[in-house]
């Protein structure tokens, strides 16, 4: 479904700030795969997702989504097949537009925009149904501006927007990291529910090892721009945090350095 072939990405090439963010990254997501992606600060996780989404072009290598080489396509042209949720709850929605207007924008993802009305009555009913599934009471607030919602509500809404039109790949970049400890598990639960309902192919970055182990069928660990672990199937099911730390040490020759991952 998604293939990343020999991808290299360096920021600020040729300056003192030169930073290799991705170094010969290869991976393949099969349809229905739910990958959790973990790694230390600056390991390149966000860069990998951003390269897949077309926010950054890659220096070398190719990105293929469902047999289409999208390496050269700009961000907005890849959007038709990608659903995305960002770490910052502010990033995924337009704050001064209504809930239904945001959903309507997402419902047309990848479609050419015309002079047809921005929202139809039929869509409103659909949105209401979908919002009910979140159990956050948003279905009665269709016209409310998104800026009025809490971080957790906004993230749940962004998730719904990302999946309203089934994406070929769903990209989640630490989408619960900015939420408080009570809200984060709730949003993760909604995530799991939406992914299972449509059997979505997913790549989820998390800094929480327990979440990385608990969710998904496959766990990938990155370090200094490379993939150093790729664990799936039965092996993944039996994994513990201690195993993971030990295997990280073996693979990288270092201690795992992500302050947030160790604390949580």
């Amino acid at each position: 479904m998604l293939r990343v072939n020999n991808v290299y990405k360096t920021f600020h090439t040729g300056t003192v700030n030169e930073k290799i963010a991705l170094y010969n990254v290869n991976m393949e997501l099969r349809e229905g795969d739910f990958i959790t992606l973990i790694g230390g600060n600056g390991a390149g996780k966000s860069t990998l997702l951003n390269c897949v989404a077309g926010v950054y072009g890659v220096d070398q290598g190719t990105i293929v989504i469902d047999a289409n080489d999208v390496t050269k396509l700009p961000e907005h042209k890849r959007a038709s097949v990608l659903g995305r949720v960002f770490q910052d709850p502010m990033m995924g929605t337009a704050a001064n537009m209504g809930i239904e207007e945001n959903l309507a924008l997402a419902y047309r993802r990848g479609q050419k925009r015309s002079l047809k009305w921005g929202i139809t009555r039929k869509e409103r009913n659909l949105f209401r149904e979908q919002l009910e599934r979140l159990e956050l009471g948003l279905e009665d607030r269709l016209q409310d501006k998104v800026g009025l919602l809490s971080g957790g509500q906004r993230q749940a809404l962004t998730l719904l927007m990302a999946t309203l039109k089934k994406p070929k790949v769903l990209l989640l970049d630490e989408h619960t990291a900015a939420l408080d400890p009570k809200t984060a598990p709730k949003v993760l639960e909604i995530t799991e529910q939406l992914i299972q309902a449509s059997n979505l192919t997913t790549m989820m970055v998390t800094h929480n090892m327990r979440d990385a182990i608990k969710h998904g069928n496959r766990l990938i660990m990155m370090h200094e721009g490379r993939i150093i672990l790729d664990i799936n199937g039965e092996e993944k099911k039996k994994l513990t945090v201690e195993d993971l730390l030990e295997r990280f040490g073996q693979a990288s020759g270092e201690e795992f350095a992500n302050d947030r991952a160790l604390l949580s």
Partner: peptide
């Protein structure tokens, strides 16, 4: 309209708008 909504959203959050294609 769809185009008009897209323009309004652009001023609010261009990154989100690009993510919507």
């Amino acid at each position: 309209t769809e185009i008009g909504c897209a323009i309004r959203a652009t001023g609010s959050n261009p990154r989100m708008v690009r993510a919507q294609g």
